[in-house]
């Protein structure tokens, strides 16, 4: 009998060990799930409009707290990262941005993990941070 050595969700969700590309993979999943969760909540939140002004205002009050602002700031960050990294993935997954295959030479640096790709990931993270700061500024009328 053989024992299955499947890492399972733990292996899938572990962003360490394999560099920034694996972190980007992990962030893409987390932000995607987070944004879907927010989207469902947002649809429910806006449906309170149909119950009149009082219902809308009481729903709005939930987001006007510190926790609400932190959550919305995270949503802004998630949205920007997911968009930026998503565009990088769409370009890469269409086969563009890492040159042509060539005869491998030691020390075998993989061209799919080139600086252009890494830079796009860092820029996506940077833009998300900037957008979060801007969002905080807007929410707190700075």
């Amino acid at each position: 009998m053989e024992k299955d050595r499947k890492e399972g969700i733990r292996g899938m969700a572990n962003p360490g060990r394999y560099g920034i590309e694996r972190v980007a993979y992990w962030l893409m999943r987390i932000t995607g799930l987070g944004l879907l969760f927010y989207f469902i909540g947002h649809i429910y939140e806006t449906s309170s409009l149909l119950d009149g002004k009082a219902a809308w205002n009481s729903m709005l009050e939930l987001t006007q707290t510190t926790e609400g602002h932190i959550f919305l700031t995270l949503v802004i960050g998630m949205c920007v990262f997911h968009t930026g990294n998503g565009i990088r993935l769409m370009i890469a997954q269409s086969g563009f941005g890492f040159g042509k295959p060539r005869r491998p030479d030691y020390p075998y640096t993989p061209s799919s993990l080139n600086m252009k790709n890494k830079l796009c990931i860092y820029v996506s993270i940077g833009l998300a941070a900037l957008a979060m700061m801007y969002g905080l500024g807007v929410m707190y009328d700075v």
Binding site: I40, L49, L50, G52
Partner: peptide, 18 residues
């Protein structure tokens, strides 16, 4: 279900049924 629920809000609000 989500599209139907969201569409209900959009249609009713845009038709002034609030």
């Amino acid at each position: 279900i989500l599209i139907a629920y969201g569409s209900r809000t959009i249609i009713m609000a845009s038709m002034g049924m609030v």
